[in-house]
Design a protein around this nucleic acid. Sequence first.
RNA 1: UGGCCCGUGGUCUAAUGGCAGGACACCGGUCUUUGGAACCGGCGGUGGUGGUUCGAAUCCACCCGGGCCAACCA
Length: 783
Amino acid sequence: MSREVANPKPGADFIRQIVAEDTESGRYGGRVVTRFPPEPNGFMHIGHAKSVCLNFGVAKEFGGVCHLRYDDTNPEGENEAFVVGFQEDIRWLGFDWGEHLYFASDYFERMYDCAVILIEKGLAYVDSESEEEIREGRGTVTKAGTPGRYRDRTVDENLDFFRRMQEGEFEGGTHVLRAKIDLESANMLMRDPVLYRIRHARHYRQGDEWCIYPMYDYAHCLEDAFEDVTHSICTLEFENNRELYDWVLDNVGFEEPRTHQYEFARLDLEYAVLSKRRIIPLVEAGIVSGWDDPRLSTVRGIRRRGVPPEALRLFCKMIGVAKAQSVVDIGKLEYAIREVLNQAAPRVMAVLDPIKIVLTNYPDGQTEEFEAPYFPHDVPREGTRMVPFSNELFIERTDFEEDPPPGFRRLVPGGEVRLRHAYVIRCEKVVRDKAGQLVELHCTHDSESRGGKGTAGRKVKGTIQWVSAAHALTAEIRMYDHLFLEIPESDSDEDEEIVSRINPDSLRILEGAKVEPSISDDSPDTRYQFERTGYFWKDPVDGVGEELVFNRIVSLKDSWSRSAAKSDVKVPKGKSGSEKVMNNPRRPEKPAVNESREAARAADPQLMARFERYSDDLGLTLEQADLLTTSPEVSDFFEKALAVYDEPAEVAGWLTTDVRGLLGARRLKDLTFDGEGLGQLVALVAADRLSRRAGKDVLARMIDEGGDPHQLIVEMGLEKVSDRSALESVIEEILAAWPEKVIEYQAGKSGLIGMFVGEVMKSTNGAADPKVARELLLKKLGG
RNA sequence: UGGCCCGUGGUCUAAUGGCAGGACACCGGUCUUUGGAACCGGCGGUGGUGGUUCGAAUCCACCCGGGCCAACCA
């Protein structure tokens, strides 16, 4: 059916464009119903999150609803814990299904009834062959399948068998219900797909009520149809399944407007493991602590890591939705997390790897407090806390360097550094033990520099964080990194192989970290920025009691270490720019004709004769002759057009490019006009009644809605405007309306000529002669 | 190898025959009591070859490359 682009929404993803078109055309009476259909046999991961954001997001944006429906049609592996898990994770992500919670297993009765309808129509049969026999009978991608010995059972026989299957009379594996479609279909899924199989297994919701269970392709479309879903959005690997989706609904008797399936590219993320098949071995081997390990890309893991749901939603928005299979840079996720946390996280000071500082000129036993703001000047949020200060402090080991590299802006022997919110200190002495190990640093503070004052005329290299030794809290800090050393290849699905790629440093535990005491008063789910190091929060499992345990959510962007260690820049895998493969640059004798079309011609002498006549007598190119003799249908169409307007090259041009393009999935025989109509149109263009461009608009209309070219020209107002003075005044207006573009054009941006011609075409509704318009524009613009 | 889908800077994505744009990354600068943030600037792209058109990322053909399909999984 034709899909008129009512009002394309530039910028929106293709799914939203389709929904927008359907909403505007009233196809579903303005209803929008989507659904998120997980199978409850695992936990939600970030790939599901993309789908959740899409389905719930689309519903929300178009005033519709999104159902949460469990696709629990296979009793094996499914359970209640996973059902609860998905609900928790979806809610956490910030979406709500309202009262629309459904279970495919609740529809088993109705699905059974639909199967009976198919059997009664002779469109499904009970096959009693073995699994292997069925597999063999299906053929291969290059070899057609062959009918099995049960394919022609009578309707009554099938009904009887199917009923007895349902009643539990047979062992698992002895019989299946199959659709009777086409064993020779190029689409393997259409070769009599299995609809029901026998499984004497306990279903987590239905118990032993059923011993036959529907297959995905049969069940899923019915679930959508039962729920009046309008847009059934799934991932690309289901593209081949769409034909079967439509077949089932059409044959069971669902009429338009009914649900339709649309496919988008699933999320793939660098360093992430996104399939159950690959996560389970990691969990079972104890490589990760469970489904909620913060290194995992499960929503539970991401959540435990401390990532806020807003960040995940922002990430999904950033990556978009399209059909091109792609791998997203992990840096985008990190950006989204920092973006959200920068605005939300209070800043506090913590020292991950402490080294002691003794202030030799600060009175022993004295304490003072600094009032320090939680947020920097550029984050519009209020709040301060008190930070205690004394003569013994900790600073970060990496903030002191005896032998500093050029550009080092922290503490060095004899040098000064500012303590954040406090004093400027100078390193006077490096104290070592007998083994030469650094023990502590003796420093002096400048009491004039309190809180940032008294620094005029003095250049202080840098500012570092610190905590007072006597007041500091000791914490364990878990530093997470990528679980894998390299981006896992999609084909590395062997368990051992995955294990061997694990990054041994994916979890680094820092035991003796020191944190400022103010945090003890905060809500346990506070996400902090530990200044200069990263974003952290208390581990919700191990960090909620007396023990302080922090997870690093994400580091801060670090332009220092990046520039200091330029050597380990990430080299993208695969081909780099310079070694981009040249795609067969020289192929002098390209095949002019297509092999399969040539074979078709060989079987049809009339087509073969026409092919030769087209290329030899009519002077068409081999390519044109080839395309025009694809089938008698095309060739006859061409002949009819020639009968009206005998200019083979011109007619062939229209038919092999424009008509083919506009036709899309439709066939010539579906059109309401034949070759004669095309011939008339081409003749009109040749007679200068309308421009070629306008002719194409007319053709599009003829193909979509039918109609006579003569009438359409008048109706659409496309009578050609090539009267120069009329065009000139249009051009004057356009140039006056785009003064900046005129200047840009005259400054050398010659590509703008297309935009000017386009504007002329637009304002004349496509009737202007673009050739003349261009010529006049060139003259006016001084080209 | 049969069918279906997909190729836009390093990465993700827009442009629906008419100005190839945005985001991330990267590089440089300004600012800064976080080597953070913010702000300014820069680098860099339509897989290839033909064709249709006044005009092609977009339509047509062929080629190259990638993905999916031969479960009684979803």
